[in-house]
């Protein structure tokens, strides 16, 4: 955090007037803690390694918002950030760091930075952020596959269902189809009309479905972003998903319409109208 910004968020006179002016150190807290403890930027709080024990008075310099990281969504802990030296002093374990992040300059490949660090010193193991992300998201990838399996089952089941519905709906029109054939409309004309109608219905249906999906995902996001206080999007409707849905529905409509129409035009017109 730039010093200028730190200075800006440190208003008011020093706490101790007579001693050497002690400027309180600054910390940041996350939104969740701010909400739970009713804290705001500029508030002074006691920061101690143990509850009720001695500690430092610190100023809250900023309130941070959590990133959209699925691995953090379900954690209910609070997050406080302080300067490294301050943390070391408070914890009484100077010079011990579990892990830290190194930002590479723009245009430098993270892999080469990691390799350079690994080569520079023993006792380090550097990973590019992407590798860490992959490592920590293994669970989500399993969940994702599970979702995909559910999606495929749903699509196959509803495709069969829709095919049957189309067959039934078209079959309901067999008297009309029979009448058209009696009047001299060719098989091809009847099939074309049925397929065209099925295609239109499936286009309208998929547009409605995409709209419904978008509304549902907005509702899900609104609800769970509130519950978990995260900007993470839990459900998304991407253009790719919409394109897939429309293509699938149109394909299904064309195939089921064609099959249904073929079933009808193969029968004798007199049989279709039931005499």
């Amino acid at each position: 955090m730039p010093l200028a910004l730190l200075a800006a968020v440190l208003p008011g006179p020093p706490v101790c007037a007579q001693a050497a002016p002690v400027v309180p150190r600054t910390v940041t807290i996350d939104e969740r803690l701010a909400a739970a403890a009713a804290l705001a930027v500029g508030d002074r709080v006691l920061l101690a390694p143990e509850a009720g024990g001695p500690g430092d008075t610190v100023t809250i310099a900023a309130i941070t918002r959590r990133g959209a990281d699925p691995s953090e969504v379900a954690r209910s802990e609070y997050r406080v950030r302080l300067h490294l030296d301050h943390l070391q002093r408070l914890a009484g374990t100077g010079d011990r760091v579990g892990r830290f992040a190194v930002a590479s300059a723009p245009g430098v490949a993270p892999e080469s930075v990691a390799a350079a660090i690994d080569a520079a010193a023993f006792g380090f193991r550097a990973y590019p952020a992407a590798a860490v992300a992959i490592e920590t998201s293994a669970t989500f990838r399993v969940v994702n596959r599970f979702h995909r399996a559910i999606g495929i089952i749903t699509i196959v089941a509803s495709a069969i269902f829709l095919l049957c519905i189309t067959l039934l709906k078209v079959d309901e029109r067999r008297r009309d189809v029979g009448a058209l054939r009696l009047l001299g409309l060719s098989r091809a004309t009847v099939v074309r009309a049925v397929v065209l109608e099925a295609a239109l219905v499936s286009l309208v249906g998929s547009a409605m479905g995409a709209g419904l999906g978008w509304a549902a995902s907005a509702l899900v996001n609104w609800h769970y972003q509130g519950v978990y206080a995260t900007p993470l999007r839990f459900a998304i409707v991407t253009p790719g998903i919409v394109a897939f849905a429309v293509t699938l529905s149109l394909g299904l409509g064309l195939v089921s319409g064609w099959v249904a129409a073929q079933r009808l035009v193969r029968r004798a017109p007199l049989e279709l109208v039931g005499r």
Binding site: D176, L180, L185, V273
Partner: peptide
Amino acid sequence: GDAEATRFRLTGVGFVFQRFYLMP
């Protein structure tokens, strides 16, 4: 054949049915 008969029904004769068979 079926296609020719269909064509004949279209242009050769006009048929009126007991139950009208209008497209609703």
